[in-house]
Simulated scan of single mutants.
Amino acid sequence: MAKRKQQKDHEILEDAPVGNGKDKDVDDESDEDMDMLDVDFEWFDPQPDVDFHGLKTLLRQLFDVDAQLFNLSELADLILSQPLLGSTVKTDGNESDPYAFLTVLNLHTHRDKQVIKDLTEYLLTKCDSIPQLPELLAPTSNAQVGVILTERFINMPAEIVPPMYNMLLEEISWALEAKELYKFSHYLVLSKTYTEVESKLDQEDSRPQKKKKKDPQLETFYFHPEDEVLHKHAMGKASFDYTKQGDEGAADSKRTFQELGVRPQAHMILIEGGKFEGAVKAISEYLAPQT
């Protein structure tokens, strides 16, 4: 299939400075000589012949430890079965693996597919904070709930997100003009959050440790910063623990260059169909490239 999305984004990323931190003059010189990476991001339609394995990787990252509860091959195939809806972001041409993706699946239209049955059942066990969701996802419901699946590698800039959402709006509009079944009554965005927890490695360290005050109100951080914007347009949201919890050292396995461990949670946001366009506009304004 020929490339339909022609938009490119020019991003300059910095290489990490070279130096061991012991010599200030060396560090200053390294900062001055810091290399810059010049990266072009390109948006493509999902490619059934190219993107299967890349999508599975990103889906596995999105669902974290609960990815094993779903047939990700079937889910990737379902995403690729609607190649004119949704986007991937790549840096090395159409034949390369995606670094990010966004799509929407109609939970009502695909309700007879096993992976959608599994996903719907899973969501219904996690939606205590969204009381409207059980009725919307009930077998007898005629609600057209579009589940938005989106994920990206952790070092991808958030500025790639607004084009994907804007393209999705445009593609849904085209689909409706063609009398296709994409008039969604609601959108359900699946995402991830995390809290910082005391490192088990530090607890086990034999050296004396200063006692730290435990804050009962743990701050929630967002892997996807656009989620905080979506909250303002949502009729409900929920963060919840994964079913397949990792062992006690799992938080430390996600600890990189920081003192605290990372405890991830799943997250979902329910938005009425009529408010989705306004939410997308707000994301575009919030994540507009800084000039």
Rank of each mutant, 00 (worst) to 15 (best):
L176M: 11
L168I: 09
P162K: 01
M164I: 07
L181A: 12
W174C: 10
T150H: 09
N166K: 13
N142F: 04
E151I: 03
L169K: 04
W174R: 14
Y182W: 14
L188M: 09
E180T: 06
N155S: 15
Q144P: 03
R152D: 02
F153M: 11
G146K: 05
A175W: 02
L149Y: 02
G146D: 07
E180L: 15
S173A: 14
A175T: 01
L188K: 02
Y187E: 00
I160D: 01
N166V: 05
L168M: 15
Y187T: 05
Y182F: 07
E135T: 15
S173T: 12
A175I: 00
S185V: 05
A138K: 09
W174S: 13
S141V: 10
Y182H: 08
V161S: 05
N142G: 14
P163E: 06
M156E: 11
K179A: 08
F153R: 13
L136W: 10
P163I: 07
L169Q: 13
T140S: 14
L136C: 04
L136K: 12
A175G: 06
E177H: 10
L169C: 13
E170F: 07
L181D: 10
V189H: 01
I154F: 04
P162W: 06
E135K: 11
A178W: 05
A138H: 15
L168Y: 01
I154H: 11
V189A: 03
N142A: 13
I160C: 06
E171G: 10
M167I: 13
N166D: 12
V147E: 03
L169H: 06
L136N: 05
G146M: 08
P134R: 06
E171P: 10
A143Y: 05
M164C: 13
P139T: 07
L137I: 04
F184R: 04
P157E: 01
P162I: 01
Q144E: 15
P134S: 05
M167G: 01
L137W: 03
K183Q: 12
S185G: 12
R152I: 02
W174K: 08
Y187W: 12
L169F: 11
F153N: 08
G146Y: 05
E171K: 09
E171N: 11
L137Y: 01
K179G: 00
M164A: 07
E151Y: 15
M167E: 12
W174G: 08
S185R: 00
L168T: 04
W174E: 13
S185I: 03
S173M: 02
R152V: 04
E171M: 07
P163Q: 10
Y165L: 12
M156S: 05
I160S: 07
P163H: 10
F184W: 02
I160V: 15
N166F: 03
W174L: 15
I154P: 00
N155P: 09
S141Q: 11
L181V: 06
Y182G: 00
F184Q: 04
V145T: 15
S141K: 06
P139F: 05
L136F: 03
K183H: 12
